Simulated assay, not measured.
Amino acid sequence: MPEAYIVAAVRTAGGRRGGALRDWHPADLAGAVLDEVVRRAGVDGAGIDDVIMGCVGQAGEQAHQIGRNAVLASNLPASVPAVTIDRQCGSSQQSVQFAAQAVLSGIQDLVIAAGVESMTRVPMGLAANLPQQHGIGGSAWSPRIQQRFGVPEFSQFAGAEAIAAKHGLSRADLDAYALESHRRAAEASLAGAFGDEILPLAGLDREGAQIVHSRDEGIRFDATLERMAGVEPILPGGIVTPASASQMCDGASAMLIASERAVRDHGLQPLARLHAFAVTAGDPVIMLEEPINATRKALAKTGMAMGDFDLFEVNEAFAPIPLAWMQALGADPARTNALGGAIALGHPLGASGARLMTTLVHALRRRGQRWGLQTMCEGGGIANVTIVEAL
């Protein structure tokens, strides 16, 4: 059987919306991680067969094929091709899976899977709202879709509330989980646990002075339950608040996926092996519950059990998602988002998939552990699962 290996993995530190990375054009931000992942692997950039770039907000500075523009902004030769994909929040996790599929098929040998999102410079929803601002077009959900599912739109906020209600989660449960995300992220950051995965970049402080941006900016080191309890819900009468939701964020991430042949020919040192993948789709109304089904599919496909895994990364789009996932599958909370998640570290939409996997692979290796599973909820009721074996 052919194999696909992760031979380098890097990310930027998350920048708050309007924060340290506000001065970075997203193509330049993505170009920086492309350069770094090639440098870390020690390969000739001219040998890269393709770049697969995840990005959700493909408008404004992220329009005109941001994957290709990232290559043009990098030190890679212009002969390196690229493509941009959108599987919503799972875009760059899907980039990894597409890259692995290309390598496993024998068609390509060195593929960069990456993602980028500047939520400062390309606000969420910009692509959907621009036509309406010019007096043309309507909703992305056609009358036929609305009639089929009986809703005027699909709302991630309503979905998060529905998951909380379905799984019996309270406001106190969500706030406690969010606080633990910040606590774990703060502990990991202070201990230098993210050091191997972060590419330090020039940034700006609040006053506009130059700084080195090397720490995730969204971590609240002084978070308390009392403060969280005072945050108003996102939806009237709801229990999900901005404090128990992922933070809007600027960031980029990249992984180099290599074939066995490339590992041998270039003398590469794999960090991990990509073991198995799954992608499933379900109810687009509740939307964010699908990681449960996707995980079950991946387990059935591989014959693995939840107890086989050392670490899990479950994207913290909203606190109900990992809580419901753990409850439904019997996952160990201590192994789930052990270094905090998007509630503390931020969720740069198109970059989050490869960001989570970068963190997962580095954490497994640092701890001397073997098996990791990553999953993410995605708009439209889709979810990806990727299983990796650290080497």
Rank of each mutant, 00 (worst) to 15 (best):
P81D: 02
A114Y: 12
E180P: 04
A328E: 12
H275F: 07
V80A: 08
A278V: 03
R206W: 08
I219L: 02
A298L: 12
T120L: 07
D35H: 01
G159H: 06
F157S: 15
G15E: 05
C55H: 06
Q97F: 06
G267N: 02
R148K: 15
V38P: 06
S74A: 02
Q58G: 08
Q156V: 14
H213C: 00
H362S: 13
G90V: 04
A188Y: 03
L179M: 11
D196H: 06
A334D: 14
G353W: 00
A338F: 03
V33K: 05
G31E: 02
R40N: 00
F312C: 09
G60I: 00
A351T: 04
A300T: 11
T120F: 10
L268R: 01
R68I: 06
R17S: 13
A300Y: 02
S91M: 10
G90P: 10
L274C: 02
V279S: 12
P123L: 11
D175N: 08
S79P: 09
A186I: 08
G67A: 05
P242E: 05
R296Y: 00
R11K: 05
A70Y: 07
E389I: 00
P291R: 01
A114N: 13
H362W: 06
P2R: 10
R273I: 05
G125I: 07
L268W: 04
G14I: 01
E180F: 01
G350F: 03
H134G: 15
I66E: 02
A46H: 13
W325Y: 11
L201H: 00
I343Q: 11
P77Y: 03
N337A: 05
L271S: 05
L204T: 06
S118G: 03
A252K: 11
A254V: 12
I387L: 01
H167W: 15
Q146Y: 15
T84C: 14
V314M: 13
G203M: 00
T295E: 01
Q369W: 04
M124D: 14
Q93M: 10
I48H: 10
L329C: 09
P270F: 07
A262R: 11
A82K: 01
E117Q: 14
E61S: 07
I107G: 09
R367L: 09
F277R: 13
L29D: 01
S244D: 13
K166D: 09
V38F: 11
L311S: 10
L268D: 11
A334K: 11
V83W: 08
Q88M: 12
A243N: 15
G340H: 03
Q132I: 12
E117A: 12
A172T: 08
G168W: 04
E197P: 07
R273P: 08
A319E: 08
A383W: 00
